[in-house]
Design a protein around this nucleic acid. Structure first.
Length: 455
RNA sequence: GGCCCCAUCGUCUAGGGGACCAGGACGUCGCGUUCUCAUCGCGAAGACUGGGGUUCGAAUCCCCAUGGGGCUGCCA
């Protein structure tokens, strides 16, 4: 039987990193097995339904390079793929349960009836006397977790008194209708699975295979519990706006709970697809580590051909109000090449290389203080100006020679003037190689900056 | 409270009875390269949660404890 998996998010207006990973593992499994990856929107809760919100889901999946074989936008033979349009189907199934006596109505809602001896007990959590059922435990052979048993002990609502079917019901009905073979989802659903299995059985439908993946927890430094949408790094949107490469984010997500079992980390997605197995997924939950994410991203950034790096940099520079159009393509590539190997995300660009594009670069006061301690800043500037002014051949070598001579003529090291010069021209105490920076900026701008810095 | 799941360096992980005084990566620290730095190179510190079993032998299997997580809604 062909594998059919689904990702079933509900439109909330944001896309959580945990959802992204759940989607990814479903997608990987479908691609690995040659099965189908289905996108289904769980928008039964009317509060959570708007075009805007749906777009967030589609855009995030596309950004991360996950394409769906059936679902909104692409169609398929098992639609509609929006739960809000499937009301008739649910009604049909509920009527079946009702007519077979497997469900009943009470307080205006529809309840699934559990099989077993009934008794009354005080429930500490509900703080009330409730009717319970000694039902046989539901057995789940989870692909990741193995044998799990859990007994439901109360009838539960499947249709609310306002007529809306609840999540557990629609989720199961859709999985039946769409022929889902493997339910791959977060461990937070593990306890719900007993309800789901009971519904599958009441409906006389085959139960799919389950694979409950570990959750992504907060960085312990940040707090306890699973990552919430308010935590740094929790939303895919954040990676988009900070200028992460989608391939890097996706790669990082692959490695959170799954491993190729060798020392590889930066992996081509085709290779991940080839190796991916549900049985290799970790049982223990993972913690989000932003530093590692940044590291991976920098590796991807470095591996980019310069033209692509430049193309990716442009919107970031533009957004920061930096005018890259003052350079032609070749010069722009020249400048950005210097920083490509140094930054972690595109977002670092304005702060690290902004001086290339504006005369309003900030002077790092800390660096000024540090340099000022051992260097006579105004004195060095006063010597730098005539020396560079006299330079007609504005090449890396010529600039370097000039600076070296200047240092040595002063009875110092060849690079004695570098720190002050960098501070004046770039505003910072560190950065890429100095000669190419000066060359790219051009003599005119360098001289202008030196004079401005002197006054 | 009840039920369910989980447990190797700070973090992500390799390991699945002898190959492990536990390997890799991020981070940290040190050194080197460099005019500088946020890159790069080299090196170091750093873990089998605890206690009982089983076994000739346990990080690996079992039990208990502890710790973490989840569910317990007419949310999804």
């Amino acid at each position: 039987m062909d594998v059919r998996v689904r990702f079933a998010p509900s439109p909330t207006g944001f896309f959580h990193i945990g959802s992204a990973r759940t989607a990814l593992f479903n997608w990987l499994y479908a691609r690995h097995t040659g099965g189908k990856f289905i996108l289904r929107i769980e928008d039964t809760d009317k509060e959570r339904n708007s075009e805007e919100y749906l777009k967030v889901i589609y855009d995030s999946l596309k950004w991360l390079g996950m394409d769906w074989d059936e679902g909104p936008g692409v169609g398929g033979n098992y639609g509609p793929y929006l739960q809000s349009q499937r009301g008739d189907i649910y009604t049909r199934y509920v009527n079946k349960l009702l007519s077979e006596g497997k469900a009943y109505e009470k307080d205006g809602a529809t309840w699934l009836r559990l099989e077993g001896e009934r008794y009354t007990e005080y429930d500490d959590y509900a703080k009330a006397e409730v009717e319970k059922v000694k039902a046989a435990p539901v057995v789940i052979e989870d692909i990741i977790r193995g044998h799990v048993e859990r007994a439901e002990d109360r009838d539960f609502v499947i249709v609310r008194s306002n007529g809306e079917p609840v999540f557990h019901l629609v989720n199961v009905i859709d999985d039946i209708e769409m022929g889902i073979t493997h339910v791959i989802r977060g461990e937070d659903h593990l306890s719900n699975t007993s309800k789901h299995v009971l519904i599958f059985q009441a409906l006389g439908a085959p139960v799919p295979q389950f694979a409950h993946m570990p959750l992504i927890l907060k960085d312990p430094a940040v707090g306890k519990g699973k990552m919430s949408k308010r935590d740094k790094g929790a939303l895919i949107e954040e990676y988009q706006t900070r200028g992460f490469l989608p391939e890097a984010v996706r790669n990082f997500l692959c490695l959170l709970g799954w491993s190729p079992k060798d020392d590889r980390e930066k992996m081509d997605i085709a290779e991940v697809i080839r190796m991916f197995e549900l049985t290799d997924i970790m049982k223990g939950s993972a913690r989000f580590d932003e530093k590692k994410m940044l590291h991976l991203n920098s590796a991807y950034l470095r591996a980019l051909p310069v033209e692509e790096f430049v193309a990716g940099a442009k919107p970031v520079l533009a957004k920061a109000g930096l005018d890259f159009a003052i350079y032609d393509e070749a010069a722009l590539a020249d400048a950005l090449k210097l920083v490509q190997e140094k930054i972690f995300v595109y977002d670092d660009l304005p702060g690290y290389a902004g001086f290339f594009f504006t005369e309003n670069y900030a002077i790092d006061e800390k660096a000024r203080e540090k340099i000022g301690k051992k260097d006579d800043i105004p004195g060095r500037i006063a010597k730098l100006i005539p020396a560079l002014e006299a330079l007609n051949d504005w090449t890396d070598e010529a600039i370097q020679n000039c600076l070296h001579k200047l240092g040595e003529s002063n009875g110092e090291k060849p690079y004695a003037f570098f720190g002050v010069l960098r501070l004046a021209v770039c505003g910072s105490g560190g950065g890429p190689e100095l000669h190419p920076i000066l060359r790219i900026l051009g003599k005119e701008r360098v001289m202008k900056r030196l004079r401005a810095f002197a006054s």
